[in-house]
Design a protein around this nucleic acid. Sequence first.
DNA 1: CTGAAAGCGCTTACAG
DNA 2: CTGAAAGCGCTTACAG
Lengths: 343, 343
Amino acid sequence: MHKKNTNKTMQDVARLAGVSMMTVSRVLRNEMKVRETTRRKVQAAIKELEYRPNISARSLASAKSHLIGFLYQNPSEGYVGQLLIGAMKKAQLRDYSLVLSNLDGTKTNVSDVLKSLLESSHVDGIILTPPFSDSEEILDMLQAVQLPTVRISPEQKECPFPFVCMDEAKAAFDMTSYLVDRGHTKIAFIKGHPDHSGSHLRYDGFMQALAAHQINLPDHYTPQGMFNYQSGFEAAEKLMLLADKPTAIFAANDDMAAATLSAAQKHHLLVPETISVVGFDDAPIATSIWPRLTTVRQPILEMAEMATDLLIDELTGKRDKTKPRQNTMDYQLTIRDTVQSLN
Amino acid sequence: MHKKNTNKTMQDVARLAGVSMMTVSRVLRNEMKVRETTRRKVQAAIKELEYRPNISARSLASAKSHLIGFLYQNPSEGYVGQLLIGAMKKAQLRDYSLVLSNLDGTKTNVSDVLKSLLESSHVDGIILTPPFSDSEEILDMLQAVQLPTVRISPEQKECPFPFVCMDEAKAAFDMTSYLVDRGHTKIAFIKGHPDHSGSHLRYDGFMQALAAHQINLPDHYTPQGMFNYQSGFEAAEKLMLLADKPTAIFAANDDMAAATLSAAQKHHLLVPETISVVGFDDAPIATSIWPRLTTVRQPILEMAEMATDLLIDELTGKRDKTKPRQNTMDYQLTIRDTVQSLN
DNA sequence: CTGAAAGCGCTTACAG
DNA sequence: CTGAAAGCGCTTACAG
């Protein structure tokens, strides 16, 4: 019953357009070597018949699965969620599906998990998200099997796989400067998960800004967090218990910034009156807390979309040679309500 | 290169096991009519060859896509996220893939979106999440095309499609009673999105508990929310501005309960000392805020898993006639730190 | 309980 | 620029 539109086949289109299946196939795959008039005839026939190619048949014949593996870990739900939505959207648009692979609990043998993913799913390509974008183990394996791969926010730019990233160090530098401009000199920084390159980049930017403004960094002002809420809460509490409290806390991501707000509440510190807080990402949580978080907006969704496009271009041989394989996107300081000016 | 394991085909297994492809296929699909000794031989061969069936070939031959449509809307990210994880996990386990369809921006023509999903994706079945589990428009369409469908947390139990739910009214009743037992009599309720059946069920349970305990409900004590943070925040503020403030607020879901905590902070009300707050769902946010939220734990993930199983059983003809098609799962009051006893 | 044959709807070389 | 043939790896009737 619901197959009424299913039984229109390439043969039908070919017949209606007065060409061979081969030509229809060419038009469908956007190959260049088709005469313009022929192309139009075929496209008209496709439209009239409401023809939809059968993905299974295509996959079988081409020995391609039209599946993309999406490797992730989940320290920060909001971040990964955005990434996923962007990738999913683009994939769907271009007739690919995502196979999600959560490598959370697998500290020991990431490569085993990857291997079984490759064997069982027959993915055509891989999207790597932090911290896997910089995992030598994974990168080596992928290169060995020559599986097209694209990376999101890697630190290592030399690796041959294309990527899309953001200048996280510069963004952290700018955010720190913003704080300094508002009169803050006692600024603490909650570090992110050490496996994630973003942690280092953001920390570096913070340190550089401090140096540039000749600001001293007191002891104990850079507690370690893990990018999740719990670790951020604990790190923030340490800071709040210090005799010489900071006037501003820069958390390496929004989840930890949100946790810092909670910790402030627990310790009866008013944000931003008593203590200013800024985050990084502009994840959904940034506007789901009160006060709304001042943070660095990363175009997370757009980064995922671009990465997915890059990969599919490569898979379909549509790679535009003029398009860069290394893309650095813009960020933006998003000023909301968690910073007080001391001037 | 990465296809080393791909080229093992059913033919190879058949040869090694000394049977026909037909028999291998039967074993693979767990059909009953295979002699036990034959089955073992085949299974051994599969194992030895590390044979993995080619999904595309199977789909093509069987005219089934092995795709399941997952319809959702996104008022509460945490809730949908859990649902998604559960469904995804089970689907993957049983060789199915999910096609996500977000019906958020499409107030007007849900049926158009559904129609195009059916035509373009050739899904074998559908998982309906709230509020679509009760959408007559969608239910009618799905029945018309006879597409196997399973529903999560519907209100209408009469519809022929199987479902899995929870006794939300009873859970709300219990939570309200819990508040009453702790001496609260001035209890407000922030209502959920009117399209979601859960909103009514939870509200009903709340009202019944009040009646059972002969507690009066002051005017303005049941502001309307929409299940998201923003609406919860506004509703909570209204309550906090009342001359006759409640001592406890029951938000119809955790997102709105979290917002209530934020609103309390804005208005310098201490939780739970000055005002108690409870939620519903036990979504991830419940423990990502401070104080940690007392709430009703719904087994969201498990519900999605069961629903997916139900659907795949039906799709593969494995439906166990003894298994109920209507499943009501257990809930649990999860007591954390946002309720103060007045006794 | 088991098998030989046909075919699912495409794409891939290979010609022209 | 276009086409005829073969085949991708399974499952579906149909026999026995």
